[in-house]
Simulated assay, not measured.
Amino acid sequence: MGYGFSREDIAYLGSAAGAAALAETDELALTPASLLRDLERSRRAFGDRASALVETVRLRRRADAKLADAGEWLFTDDALQQATPSLVARQRAQRLAGRTVHDVTCSIGAELVELSRVCPAVIGSDLDQVRLDIAAHNLRRAASRNVLLAKADALVPCSTAEVVIADPARRADGRRTHDPAKLQPPLPDLLAAYAGRDLAVKCAPGLDFDRLDWAGEVEVVSLDGAVREACLWSPGLTAPDVTRRATVLSSSGPAWAITDADPDDIPERAPGEWIIDPDGAVVRAGLVRHYAAKHGLWQLDPRIAYLTGDTVPPGTRGFRILHQMPFKEKPLRAELHRRDCGPLEILTRGVDIDPDTLRARLKPKGSQPHTLVITRIGRTPTVFVCATP
């Protein structure tokens, strides 16, 4: 659960004395092996402040991989877990550039920082006063001067901002939930509260959108190959005829997107030279055929998300097919032995196979790395022996 910060903790941590104490605490290793020893050392130096100092330094170190320029920010454990990665928040802010925006579940302000850079006026509100205090600190550190903070209930509209953003908490009874009605605040209640207004709602990508009568766009976003979130965009914030979008972000390359307004006509052909596993955002958004059409690919099977073709799209990982056979362990083991297979990556889709259990049974002992792609073609479990890229 993490340390429970108080308003007094936040005031101290944001002071000159707190900054100096945090700098000294940051010199500690704070590894699992050293944590108890480091905490005792901190208590001797800072007394009752030690737990808040140690927790803050540990959270800042975790935040480095998620949030840009957040080295002097404050956090709580739960808030950091739910905070939107900076690149994802920046991409959403660009869609809202030039508008006034109200983030009604602003938490510690990660989204507000990005919005403040492209929007003329931003409001952030939350019911948690400690998080509002943290947001005020973080906004000062980010030099965000066009943001107003307020304590308010997300289900009670209190501004006339052009766009409302919300990020309902995705846990219920201590567990992650995919039920829209169990989010906090409940998603149906949130949508009802802002009916008729331009609205963007961040959600977990595994949320069951079929339970919603949503007339706008569902955007699924990935970052560096990992699906991060879905965002519901009301009709006034999306292009005509777009109800699904996959946005693929990279910390080291350009972003790209595909929508259900793009063509999806693809041929039915035998497997090509390569197998391509589309980005998770494309799969979650149901845009596999659209992605295939864009890149001259086709499906191994109409019901399976693996694609195939004679070229690999730029920036995408492809698996060159060496051999195709029905999935049977004994012949497969012989084929891998014949190929001097050693390190073995196993990808599965559409079949009930545990890769780790199968790898142990296949017992590859050679020196050449290979990849197995195991799936269904029609009703036949099929394995493709591939070169590891």
Rank of each mutant, 00 (worst) to 15 (best):
5 F>L: 13
6 S>A: 01
8 E>T: 13
13 L>I: 00
17 A>P: 00
18 G>E: 00
18 G>D: 00
19 A>F: 02
19 A>L: 04
24 E>F: 05
26 D>Q: 06
29 A>N: 13
39 L>V: 13
42 S>L: 12
55 E>R: 01
60 R>V: 13
67 L>P: 03
75 F>Q: 10
75 F>Y: 15
79 A>W: 07
84 T>S: 02
85 P>R: 15
101 V>H: 10
103 D>Y: 08
105 T>F: 08
107 S>W: 05
138 N>P: 07
143 A>K: 12
144 S>C: 15
152 A>V: 02
152 A>P: 02
153 D>H: 10
161 A>V: 07
172 A>P: 00
188 P>Q: 12
194 Y>G: 09
196 G>P: 01
198 D>I: 08
201 V>G: 09
204 A>F: 04
207 L>R: 10
211 R>W: 00
219 E>P: 08
225 G>L: 04
235 P>D: 14
235 P>E: 14
235 P>Q: 13
238 T>P: 11
239 A>C: 03
240 P>R: 03
242 V>S: 15
243 T>G: 14
249 L>M: 10
250 S>Y: 08
253 G>W: 03
254 P>Y: 02
266 I>M: 12
280 G>N: 06
286 G>P: 04
289 R>Q: 04
291 Y>A: 00
295 H>M: 03
305 A>I: 07
308 T>I: 04
311 T>M: 04
312 V>T: 12
313 P>G: 05
318 G>V: 01
331 P>M: 07
336 L>T: 14
339 R>Y: 00
353 I>C: 00
358 L>Q: 02
365 K>H: 10
366 G>T: 06
372 L>R: 07
379 R>W: 10
380 T>F: 06
380 T>W: 07
381 P>T: 07
386 C>P: 13
